[in-house]
Nucleic acid binder design. Sequence first.
DNA 1: CCAGGAATGAAAAATATGTTTCACTGCGCA
DNA 2: TGCGCAGTGAAACATATTTTTCATTCCTGG
Lengths: 288, 288
Amino acid sequence: MTQTPPDNLETLRKEIANRYQTLSPRLKQVASYVIDNPNDIGLETLSVIASRCNVQPSTIVRFAKAFGYRGASDMQRLFRNEILSASPAPSYSERIRQFRKRSDEVDWLSPHNVLHDFAESNIIALEHLREVVLPADLEKSVELMHKAHTVYLAGVRRSFPVAAYLAYSLSHVEKRAFLLDGVAGMTSEQSWMLGPEDVVIAISFRPYSDDTAAVAERARANGAPLIAISDSRLSPIARDAAVCFEIKDAEVRQFRSLTASMCIAQTLVISYAYKYGAEKPKIGDERR
Amino acid sequence: MTQTPPDNLETLRKEIANRYQTLSPRLKQVASYVIDNPNDIGLETLSVIASRCNVQPSTIVRFAKAFGYRGASDMQRLFRNEILSASPAPSYSERIRQFRKRSDEVDWLSPHNVLHDFAESNIIALEHLREVVLPADLEKSVELMHKAHTVYLAGVRRSFPVAAYLAYSLSHVEKRAFLLDGVAGMTSEQSWMLGPEDVVIAISFRPYSDDTAAVAERARANGAPLIAISDSRLSPIARDAAVCFEIKDAEVRQFRSLTASMCIAQTLVISYAYKYGAEKPKIGDERR
DNA sequence: CCAGGAATGAAAAATATGTTTCACTGCGCA
DNA sequence: TGCGCAGTGAAACATATTTTTCATTCCTGG
């Protein structure tokens, strides 16, 4: 038990984070809830907080005592004060006005602004994506994956994360998937084995990688169906593809995002899993 | 006594204003206090509100009843709800819950529906992201990366794509970056070299990987600053982090997305590049 | 000046809330 | 196997808070 109960929210947060590992399971539940829903702690009664954490009221008291307070009320007082000091009760219009002002003052170079721009343009890219992708392409891809003995993933450089994600998540829904990752420069050695019973998902964007194009070419030569994720139907990998997803990803200051590509990848995996995959993708998954 | 108790703060305000003249002196006192200190009404107990108005607790009850509520508690609930809904906008979990409800109504998810849902929840996640990330955290991270001799990336399984992306794009803006990728199971062998002059970016989500946690622990032991990208401040890697980005990524049918994490990763790289990075991409190189 | 009734304060009663206790479970360890 | 102990849930208990009651005050109209 702590000797010095934290007297402001920030230090309490840190203290909880530090000691989280050492807490008992129930106290961990409470800890997460306290961190995630500070308002509730201040506003609701013990029993409703308790039921929201799936815990007994007494556990909340134990939690508070574990952090040095004399009781749960003691701790709640802290959160109430925080609410009181955080919102000096200005009117709504006042708050809106202040928010506007703040975002106008931001200098355009700050990281925060980069984040804002990035989030914004990713959002636009996602909205675009769901409009232009043809349902038939998705269904066809799912069928190809289903019929395939093995799914091979090809993608390097900027596209590598997408390929890696696909390899990881497909194998987690119990679809045999291999990443042609070119470790030790073995991409071509890895791809001789492609056959008509497999499927290749190749991901590549301008300027197209020779490696990935070679895999696509090998797939064509060996009769393996190809699903292409690319920025143009004219790209080297799209040429002989059974399905081609033409993805326009967001671009901020010359940096292209991967959001839309990742979104398509995830959609493929989930659609596959939903239709054919193992029902339980993960074990030990904690729910809130 | 009013038949219809106002069910939101705005109408209650109007109602009070309308009837103010007709109220008894004590009720007028209460009325002014209620108008001026809405937070107190929600947060404090009747007796402290009463004493702040120089009034008896019973008067507060009378006031509430005069406006149609069944008791003072009834009226207080209104103010609490107002505080809950006003402070952090609709919370992320709330928005997700609402979205879930909508998409649950479609019982069979075609691939196209999956895409739609995925795009939608990624958008929500991105909107949430840009609201909760602290500019100071971004700036601090950029400074840490700048001062570091080398940036080490740790992330496995689902987080691997993010780490891979960071390694790739950082080295393309001429920042020395290595992926602790555990090829040949060498993660721990790779991480002994971390030192105070470096920085580690560790990415891990529930259920947390022991490998990544070990790297974080090693970073701490060796005095290397740590930037954590995780889903909770309570995660093993967040404990000793100099900066922790708490990312709530989208989740559709148990599958968690990477959109928000990727967005943060990209923001870090671009912000770094903008402030310190090489001005021009290398000739003939893929756009970053 | 004196009813009569609304408004008020004080305190009792009712209720809700927070805290403590205790018995039980599951687990590590001799 | 049995002991001891930390962790937990349920319920008893104590406290705080709200609501009601009732006696008193204050004002108004006859």
